[in-house]
């Protein structure tokens, strides 16, 4: 563990807590893409299958359990409790356009052709594009609530911090995982446009609005 990975995990945790807080306080999931949340639940489910078979640390296990539980709880809130506030008209990104190609790629490009490894690879590739329905929804609605932009900033920062973690681990541990690094860079690049808007607008107290 290094400071970048710890900050990254905390940023990820913060993002999830911000989202839950937003939905709980406003009793609404307006502006949030349910499809992205479904993809995140799929990411965690396929990535943490070794939850019971390999023990790394208490921290690792509790974080995995929290990520899995919170992702399904978020889906429950969006599609059940606060269903009336779910904006399905603007959440129209076709998930199959992401899941199918990513599934195929995971079969073709992986470290080992084993079920657990292919599922882990699928999860890494899927996570890199899972935010697209959410970004697509923000671009369709043309704006996002300020708390939603904080959620996206924390979520985008987590994988950016992980990139620093991989640089650190490469030089200090000699650890390097090309698949995770490439997917992590793609994932972070997808946020660049949003990062720019967040820093130039939201941090100046303005609302996040995309040029129509």
């Amino acid at each position: 563990m290094n400071v970048f990975r710890l900050l990254g995990d905390m940023s990820h945790l913060l993002a999830i807590l911000i989202l839950l807080l937003k939905m709980w306080k406003t009793r609404s999931c307006a502006g949030i893409s349910g499809k992205t949340q479904i993809l995140f639940a799929l990411v965690f489910t396929t990535r943490y299958l070794d939850l019971f078979s390999s023990f790394i640390s208490i921290y690792n296990t509790t974080m995995k359990l929290f990520f899995i539980a919170s992702s399904y709880f978020t889906i429950f809130l969006m599609y059940s409790k606060f269903k009336a506030t779910y904006d399905s008209n603007h959440d129209s990104f076709r998930m199959e356009f992401l899941v199918v190609p990513v599934g195929g790629l995971a079969f073709l490009v992986n470290h080992e052709f084993l079920p657990l490894e292919i599922l882990w690879t699928f999860s890494i590739y899927l996570e890199s594009v899972a935010i697209l329905p959410q970004l697509f929804m923000v671009s369709k609605t043309g704006e996002a609530e300020t708390i939603t932009s904080h959620y996206l900033f924390a979520l985008g920062s987590y994988r950016l911090l992980y990139i620093f973690n991989w640089v650190y681990r490469y030089y200090f541990d000699g650890f390097f995982d090309l698949i995770a690094v490439v997917a992590g860079c793609v994932q972070t690049i997808l946020y660049c446009d949003f990062f720019y808007l967040y820093i130039t607008k939201v941090l100046k107290g303005k609302k996040l609005s995309l040029p129509a």
Partner: peptide, 10 residues
């Protein structure tokens, strides 16, 4: 590229 190392990242 010891990616096969135990998956210790979240």
């Amino acid at each position: 590229k010891d990616s096969s190392a135990k998956k210790d990242e979240l």
